[in-house]
Design a protein around this nucleic acid. Structure first.
Lengths: 111, 111
DNA sequence: GCCTTATCTGTAGATATTCTAGGTGTTCTT
DNA sequence: AAGAACACCTAGAATATCTACAGATAAGGC
């Protein structure tokens, strides 16, 4: 009956991925760990959310993928930001800020 | 082809409704206007989002509805917050703050 | 009196995102 | 030899939101 379905991401996933990839090319598995680490364990990204999101962003031309070897010598798919991806990141950050500003206005109404 | 689908609410709608209803019983139509007004026109709540949301919140026992007359003498369905709804509002505000804190951590990473 | 706008409620169907729950294979550690 | 960690993936369900309708009443302009 678990009504306890927590939805963490609230549509922020694309922006978060773009932001972290913007720090430098990274593969999916490491990306998920990085997001978890930076957010102090708040975001625990599921693979069923992660990989479809990466493919989505690639399809839209915001990320570019390339198979390369990791430091430990394994093959992994590294994602890098495209120029369009960088613009998209800006757009998403801006609209996220507008959203949080608007929410703040509502939450702060004393009456 | 319009890729320009804007999704404003990002899962905040329930919280916003609970918050505004907490200011005092209000009917749906006025609620939508109030949210738009307080948010300085950022949120322009569609009826197809509004009414299903109200029914959802009522089903979950967070709102209680009652038909009453408006100031202008028309019948409208006024929603009021239940005690459980008040608790839920607190929960949602808290988790919203956690979310925005976590997002902030990601967005602020210089490297 | 008529017409348009504003008020007030609602539903159906499409779309998009995220989660659960699986699956595959490789390398490292014990 | 076994299990954990690494690294990728998909299918299907659940949920939220939007578009696009539909209907009814009241108010205001002409």
């Amino acid at each position: 009956m678990a009504e306890e379905k927590v939805e963490f991401l609230k549509g922020t996933l694309d922006m978060l991925i773009l932001k972290v990839v913007a720090l430098g090319p990274i593969h999916g598995y490491a990306l998920a760990q990085r997001i978890q680490q930076i957010s102090r364990d708040f975001f625990q990204l599921q693979q069923g959310s992660l990989y479809p999101a990466l493919h989505r962003l690639e399809d839209r031309g915001w990320l570019k993928a390339e198979w390369k070897a990791t430091e430990t010598g394994r093959e992994a798919k590294f994602y890098a930001l495209t120029p369009r991806g960088r613009k998209q990141l800006e757009v998403e950050v801006k609209s996220w800020e507008q959203l949080t500003d608007a929410v703040r206005l509502i939450l702060r109404t004393a009456d």
